[in-house]
Design a binder for these strands. Structure first.
Lengths: 225, 225
DNA sequence: CTTATCAAATTGTTCAACAATCCCTACATT
DNA sequence: AATGTAGGGATTGTTGAACAATTTGATAAG
């Protein structure tokens, strides 16, 4: 290791000198555990356990909880503790309602940034490559990146941030499904969508995206309900 | 008073039995001071002062800061304290970019909830009434409510929440302007927009809204820059 | 005029204690 | 058996104090 630091029982290192706060460090660890499935939706996060395990004070841990709560990954019930969020069917429907709005608006835009287009190509290629290797979790990551990049055509920091939050929420639902069945059907459609975007056929891209999102929503609702 | 509670130097009562937390109570007070102009943008919020004034501990105050920071009303500079957010021209531009997207999408929707339409009528009438009385701050509130209701046609909790946050941010910029010059020009246009929505002329409503938002953005940018 | 140094003030983080609330269990009542 | 109602243990909410780290402003040296 090039950076000095203390390590805890789980091997996660905690740097001595960090620019960001200890709370953000703790939040990063918990975020990873949630998004990677180590902490399934509905799990309770007890303060006693985690302060001992992460070796941070209760106050810092609670600040980390607050951060993840605002990302909608954790749910804070007053006097009852924090839980990993459980997505309801209503949540899934709402998330896809927003996706249709902000991805649709992005796709319909006439002016597409060429730099983002190359990033888009990379995301599709990455997804196909890791799919060939059977790494379906990474396929999911590349897929989310693809759609995040589409949203970025809107050119709005705030919309980008909202999309990032929606993607984090969606990961919660992903863990309830077979990752291959979830992502495999959408790989060729991402490739097709990319082609339409490159050639500027915005109306067709819009239509394809709409059916794409409808199908994805249906898939998740079938599990989530 | 029907509810028992302790009161501080500013007359804000703090109920003994609350379902929500003390931090949220403190956040509510600070939120009010920010949105009503008591704390102008750029103000520093010193921990010492506020712990004494609100009679809460430093930890809970910092939790309140965290809450308002996530609402983008306060800005936290590491090791330098928290400040009331100052909107940059980029911020204003971004906010109106998002408004065009989510209000535009709402206006274009064919299915409008009749209940929301009556609420919309009330908002316009309220704005006109308080304008006649010269209460321009309340005009601003009614105007924001009008546009929040428009957004609600999208039928998405998350989009509603985003719009609420944008409105809170916009209030920050409002304080830098003469409230009459800011709101008076838009009263008749809200009335006109309402008429178009009621008669289902969505395309015309969309066009009117677009110029409305362009003009409003220009007005705020002139001050903010 | 610039740079270096130091002290005061403020924020970042932790800890320990106590208050408030929830949850579960046992018991009583119908 | 079902419901209701105290306890008591466990967990969270809140506080105040303490110390570390950083910024800030003033002062002194070059």
């Amino acid at each position: 290791m090039s950076e000095p630091g203390s390590s805890n029982a789980h091997g996660e290192t905690r740097p001595f000198r960090v620019r960001s706060s200890t709370a953000e460090w703790a939040a990063a660890i918990l975020r990873q555990r949630v998004t990677q499935g180590g902490l399934p939706p509905g799990s309770r996060l007890a303060e006693d356990e985690l302060t001992a395990e992460l070796e941070v004070s209760r106050n810092t841990l609670r600040e980390a909880f607050s951060l993840l709560g605002h990302e909608r990954l954790l749910e804070h019930r007053f006097n009852r503790g924090v839980y990993v969020r459980v997505l309801s069917p209503d949540d899934v429907a709402d998330i896809y309602r927003v996706r249709r709005m902000i991805e649709g608006a992005a796709v319909r835009r006439p002016d597409k940034d060429p730099i983002s287009l190359t990033a888009l190509r990379d995301a599709v290629s990455d997804a196909e490559r890791v799919a060939a290797e059977g790494r379906w979790l990474d396929v999911g990551t590349a897929d989310l990146r693809f759609h995040q990049l589409i949203v970025s055509f809107n050119g709005s920091r705030r919309v980008d941030a909202m999309m990032a939050q929606l993607m984090a929420e969606l990961r919660l639902a992903f863990h309830a499904m077979d990752p291959r069945g979830l992502h495999a059907p959408f790989l060729p459609r991402n490739r097709e969508l990319l082609g339409l975007l490159e050639s500027g056929r915005n109306a067709e891209a819009d239509a394809l995206l709409a059916t794409y999102l409808d199908d994805a929503e249906r898939l998740l609702l079938a599990v989530c309900a």
